[in-house]
C-alpha cells in the first residue's frame, strides 16, 4: 500500500516535472516569439534602411540613374572591386554650415522640449489628479488633434499667424496699431514644434504621475514638509521615467524636423532637416545627403544610448 503510494507519487512527480519542463520550454519559445517580432521589425525597418543609406553615403555622386556610383564593380572577370569613399564625411567637417545647422537644430529642439515640459507637466498633473470620470475625456482632448493630418494643422497655423491672419485681425480690432509679424520667424517655429509635439510629452507624464502613490505625499505633509519641497523631492524623482520618456519623444523628432521650419520658419532658420533636403534635391548629391543623415543619426543615437545605459546602471545600483 505504501509502496504503491510512493510509486504513484514518483509517477505523479515525474509527469509533473516533465510537464513543467515542457511548459518552461513553451514559455521560452513564447518569449522568443515575443522578442522576435520587434527584433524582426528593427532589422527590417531600421537596420536594412540604415545599411542602404550608409552604402549610398560612401559612394560617389554621378550623373545617371541612380545618381551615385555602384559600390561593387567587376574590375576583371573574377575580381570584385569595393570602393568606399569617406570623403563625403570629411566634407561635412570642412564646411561650418553642417555643424551650425546641426547645433542650431539641437538648440531649437532642446528649447522646444523644455517649453513642452513646462507646459506639459502641469497639464498631465491636472489630468492625473482630476476625477476619474473626467480623465478619459481630458486625455481624449489631448489626443484629438491626431485625428487631423499633421500637415493640415501646421497649415492652419499659417492662417492664424499671417500678417492679415486671424490673430492679427483680432488684435487690431482690440486696438493694436501695427500688425505683429509672427509668420516666418523663429517664434513661429517654436510655436509649431511645441504645439505639434505637446501630446507626446503629456501622455508619458500622465502615466507616470497617475501611478504615483499619494500616501507618500500625505506622509511628507504629516512630517511637516512644504508642498513645493514635497513636489521637488518626491513627485519629480518618482515621475522621472515619464519626464525622460516625454523629453525623448519630443526632442528626437524635433531635431530632424523639416516641415515646421519649412512652412512657418523664416529664410534664416537653418536646421539640419532643411540642409538634408537641399543636398538631396537641390545639389542632387545623394552621397553627401546620405552622409548628413548618417552623421545626424550617429550624433543623436550615441549620446542617447550612453544616457540610457547610465540610467539603467543607476537603477540597477539602487536595487
Amino acid at each position: 500500500m505504501r509502496l504503491a503510494e510512493l510509486r504513484a507519487w514518483i509517477r505523479a512527480l515525474g509527469t509533473w516535472r516533465w510537464a513543467s519542463h515542457r511548459l518552461r520550454g513553451w514559455r521560452q519559445g513564447g518569449r522568443t516569439a515575443v522578442m522576435g517580432v520587434p527584433t524582426l521589425w528593427l532589422l527590417l525597418f531600421f537596420l536594412v534602411p540604415f545599411i542602404i543609406v550608409f552604402k549610398i553615403s560612401v559612394s560617389d555622386a554621378r550623373l545617371g540613374m541612380p545618381p551615385y556610383e555602384p559600390l561593387f564593380t567587376w574590375a576583371q572577370a573574377q575580381v570584385m572591386q569595393l570602393k568606399l569613399n569617406f570623403a563625403n564625411y570629411a566634407f561635412l567637417f570642412e564646411d561650418a554650415l553642417y555643424r551650425n545647422a546641426y547645433l542650431n537644430s539641437v538648440v531649437t529642439a532642446g528649447i522646444s522640449t523644455l517649453i513642452c515640459l513646462l507646459i506639459g507637466y502641469p497639464m498631465a498633473y491636472g489630468i492625473a489628479r482630476s476625477k476619474p470620470a473626467w480623465r478619459n475625456l481630458l486625455l481624449l482632448l489631448v489626443m484629438l488633434p491626431f485625428w487631423t493630418s499633421f500637415l493640415l494643422r501646421v497649415y492652419a497655423w499659417i492662417g492664424l499667424l499671417r500678417t492679415d491672419g486671424v490673430i492679427n485681425k483680432a488684435l487690431m480690432f482690440l486696438g493694436l496699431d501695427e500688425p505683429l509679424v509672427m509668420l516666418q520667424t523663429n517664434f513661429a517655429v517654436y510655436l509649431g514644434i511645441v504645439y505639434s509635439y505637446l501630446p507626446f510629452m503629456i501622455l508619458p507624464l500622465y502615466t507616470a504621475i497617475e501611478r504615483l502613490d499619494l500616501t507618500l505625499l500625505e506622509a511628507a505633509a504629516d512630517l511637516g514638509c512644504k508642498p513645493t519641497k514635497a513636489f521637488l523631492r518626491i513627485t519629480v524623482p518618482l515621475t522621472k521615467g515619464g519626464i525622460i520618456a516625454g523629453c525623448m519623444l519630443v526632442f528626437i523628432p524635433a531635431v530632424g524636423e523639416f516641415v515646421i521650419p519649412a512652412l512657418l520658419g523664416g529664410p534664416d532658420s537653418l536646421m539640419i532637416g532643411r540642409v538634408l533636403w537641399e543636398e538631396f534635391f537641390n545639389n542632387r548629391d545623394w552621397p553627401v545627403a546620405s552622409a548628413v543623415a548618417i552623421a545626424m543619426l550617429l550624433l543623436l543615437v550615441i549620446p542617447i544610448m550612453i544616457f540610457q545605459r547610465a540610467q539603467g546602471a543607476r537603477a540597477g545600483a539602487h536595487r
Binding site: 555622386a61 550623373l63 564646411d95 561650418a96 554650415l97 551650425n100 545647422a101 529664410p267 534664416d268 532658420s269 537653418l270 540642409v275 537641399e278 537641390n282 545639389n283 542632387r284 548629391d285
Partner: peptide
C-alpha cells in the same frame, strides 16, 4: 555642372541664412 551647382546652392544658402 555638378560642381558649379554645388557652389551656386552654397552661395544661395549664405545669402538666405547669412551662414
Amino acid at each position: 555642372s555638378q560642381e558649379y551647382s554645388r557652389e551656386l546652392n552654397r552661395a544661395w544658402t549664405r545669402v538666405r541664412t547669412g551662414q
